[in-house]
Amino acid sequence: MKKTLITLAVLAAATGVAQAQSSVVIYGTVDAGFVSERGGKAGTVNKIDSGIASASRIGFKGTEDLGSGLSALFVLESGFKVDSGSQEGDALFGRQAYVGLSSKTAGTVTLGRQYTPWYNTLSKVADPFAAGYSGSAKNLFPAATTRTSNTVLYTSPNFGGFDADVAYSAGNNGQESLVSSKIGRQMGASAGYTNGPLNARVAYNATSNEATAQGSARNWLVAANYDFTVVKAYAAYGVNKGANSSLRNNGNVDFYNTASRGGFSDDSTTALIGATVPVGPAGTVMASVIHVNDKSGINADANQFALGYSYALSKRTSTYASYAKISNKNNAGYTVGNNSNVGSGDQAFNVGVRHSF
């Protein structure tokens, strides 16, 4: 009850600010649908799920012009579950919470909880499903952190189509004084080029394994998409080295209901090819194929085939349907999830509605 009252108070206060200042905007997404999962130890699982195509959220963002090309900005974003009405996670603004300064000539610096450069490259450049639906690239690409807390992020201005960003995230996990301040520390960067129909980017992320004296988990990702008008083509290739570099997004659950599991690789690659095809004035077909090549000796490879369709009922509302199937080798244990949930089996179908405001 206390958490609910605090949430309502924050929303009410933010709404008052939004009415008083045009620089503050309230935005959000409400996404829910029917999901059918098969092929896991629980058998067939049918449910109403939240955040299938895009995570359900409500957010507040604002800017203030400070003069001379300088401005202040902030974002506060909270996730929730449409199927139950509950808050997503324990943190009130667990999705994003940052403040910063932006210069038209020098770039932008923000501090707080933010998306990593690696994840932005995966979701915005590499994946035709934009990390959502049953075809989400998150099903097979490693679980490099989506967001990091205690982060300082620098984003450069755009120079003739080129831009870059660099992020540093302190561990701050409560163990610094007992073990090492490097525990959980992350460093990431990306650089990209956009010119007309071409969008290309390379990203890197490193996570410290200081607690286990295993060095760092290192993830590289190269991605590009090109819009041919009649079809938009996507391609991506990732290299993952070091302990915990290839963690599954499902947490390596006991997928097969057996003591034998695929295990965690410390040397793998992940490749994707895909496309989106406009159909009529409001429809879009999405498709992708993803392959995981485990080079660690476990040989826990996997392939995912995915197909989806989205239809825009308006600028803010769309309906969708998608299906994906994963073929796991040697008990690899990857599962078909969506934008918000990891799934329970090796195949899933979903159909739903998404509204943005």
Results as ranks from 00 to 15, higher is better:
Lys41Gln: 15
Ser310Lys: 04
Leu5Pro: 00
Val10Ala: 10
Gly112Ile: 02
Pro281Val: 11
Val239Ala: 08
Val125His: 02
Ala13Ser: 12
Phe34Asp: 07
Gly337Gln: 09
Arg248Gln: 04
Gly297Ser: 10
Val353Asn: 04
Ala131Thr: 15
Asn225Tyr: 00
Ser268Met: 06
Gly132Gln: 09
Phe129Ala: 15
Arg354Thr: 15
Thr108Tyr: 02
Ser356Asn: 14
Ala211Trp: 03
Gly308Glu: 15
Thr155Met: 06
Asp227Lys: 05
Phe357Ala: 11
Ser246Glu: 09
Gly94Cys: 09
Phe74Arg: 05
Gly242Thr: 02
Asp31Lys: 01
Lys295Arg: 12
Ala106Val: 02
Val99Gln: 06
Val353Trp: 01
Ser136Arg: 01
Asp165Met: 15
Val179Arg: 09
Gly345Asp: 03
Val279Arg: 10
Val285Ala: 12
Gly79Ser: 08
Asn120Cys: 02
Val75Leu: 14
Tyr154Ala: 07
Ala20His: 03
Ala167Ser: 14
Gly40Met: 06
Ala211Val: 12
Pro278Ile: 05
Glu64Val: 14
Gly337Trp: 05
Asn172Val: 12
His355Ser: 15
Leu101Pro: 03
Asn341His: 08
Ala126Trp: 00
Gly112Ser: 05
Leu122Pro: 00
Ser86Asn: 10
Asn158Lys: 08
Phe159Ile: 12
Asp163Cys: 05
Val353Pro: 01
Gly161Ser: 05
Asn172Arg: 12
Thr4Phe: 10
Val202Met: 09
Tyr334Gly: 09
Phe264Thr: 13
Arg316Thr: 15
Asp90Arg: 12
Ala167Thr: 13
Asn240Val: 02
Gly69Ala: 06
Gly251Met: 05
Ser356Leu: 10
Asn173Pro: 06
Ala243His: 05
Ala126Pro: 00
Gly51Arg: 11
Ser136Pro: 07
Phe349Lys: 12
Pro128Arg: 01
Gly238Ile: 05
Asn225Met: 09
Val336Cys: 07
Asn46Phe: 01
Ser265Leu: 05
Ala55Lys: 10
Gly67Val: 11
Phe349Gln: 11
